[in-house]
Design a protein around this nucleic acid. Sequence first.
DNA 1: ATTATCTATAGATCTATAGATAATGC
DNA 2: ATTATCTATAGATCTATAGATAATGC
Lengths: 217, 217
Amino acid sequence: MNRPAPRRRPGRPAKADAGDTKAELLRAALTLFARHGYAGTSVRAIAREVGLSESVLYAHFPGKQAIFEAALALGGPHITVAAIAGLDATPAGSPAAYVRDLAAAVLDAWDTPEGRRLASLAARDGLMHDPALADAIDASLEHLAGVFRRWLDDGLIRDDLGDADDLAYALLSPIAHARVLWLHDDATPAQRDKARERALRHADLFARAVTPPAARG
Amino acid sequence: MNRPAPRRRPGRPAKADAGDTKAELLRAALTLFARHGYAGTSVRAIAREVGLSESVLYAHFPGKQAIFEAALALGGPHITVAAIAGLDATPAGSPAAYVRDLAAAVLDAWDTPEGRRLASLAARDGLMHDPALADAIDASLEHLAGVFRRWLDDGLIRDDLGDADDLAYALLSPIAHARVLWLHDDATPAQRDKARERALRHADLFARAVTPPAARG
DNA sequence: ATTATCTATAGATCTATAGATAATGC
DNA sequence: ATTATCTATAGATCTATAGATAATGC
């Protein structure tokens, strides 16, 4: 992806040549960690990716673990939480419209270069098993369950399928699973299309399933 | 987990001491690869785990990559395909019963020490992105869609929610997602219970959702 | 003087191989 | 003689640090 980049001579580079080294290192780190995992990515490889000597990395970060954590923080799970929380769930819009909007919003948040890299990173280095990520997932499910709870109280959706938590899981997990399977860092464009289509079709199916008989044409 | 195991003296060990070294190596390899990934697991660590010198590994396998592949083959995705294909999907049992049986069957296949290790392994080393795994997932979805197609033709389930493929994804992906989140190698017993509960509750919800109005009490 | 880079290197670890050693099975 | 292990080691990494070098900004 990056030209091998000629080595610089010793000494501080002229202002014209100086990019934002720290940001470039982080970007390269995220790319490589996502592709090869923590253990499979050397400090050397990160430095080479941005065309610098490896020792420069220690001028910007205390060590490898610190780079990893900084790269991770670039786009943590809060992105998903924010995408869901930012939606309008007032009774003004119909439940069906909200469900479709939600699927579209999280897909947009996830299907970006950084979002895809983070999906790979989370899988590769066991962050899927990380308490911080688990909390974020629970928070998203809980938020959605709260929306469903209101709708159940208001009789806007069927109440004989399951409780609000079950409904939240039934809607979100197929969308999240599409991310795991087809929205990772080395997904092909065809796979990404498949993820979007599967997720959006699922949102439609879910919307139809929760619509009460009375409200159906 | 394993006692550090005292080093043997040089020379072929007496028959009494000789275990099935190759099998022990594979077991240790699967455990460590699942826990730390391919790059994070050294040949040395595998050998130490079974209490042998690292060079013994090269007597049984051509190299590290070969051990990895052999460990992987221990319990590939065919387990899931077999669990689903082994179910009785004749109209004799009701769709609702089949759906619940399917969830229970795949959970049983996945919630074993080896099954959990493979879930971690697949995530850690990008096998989630592997064509072989993708094919296995498609095969499972396709098999299930075939079952649904028959039921749709026979009017046993609602035909206004989505087509057979959509229904298959709506049932399977939440169960598979429970595996990804809570049935991996370092899942706690509480997480494993959560996985089972979530998956089984989802199967129930799905069964209720696809039951046609006419068939409901 | 400070900052941002480099070169060189220490010391740890990794994969893999060569060759020694001792029990087994013919 | 063959098999299953060991010890020792080569050669390639890897992380991290020390110290040189040259532009910047006061």
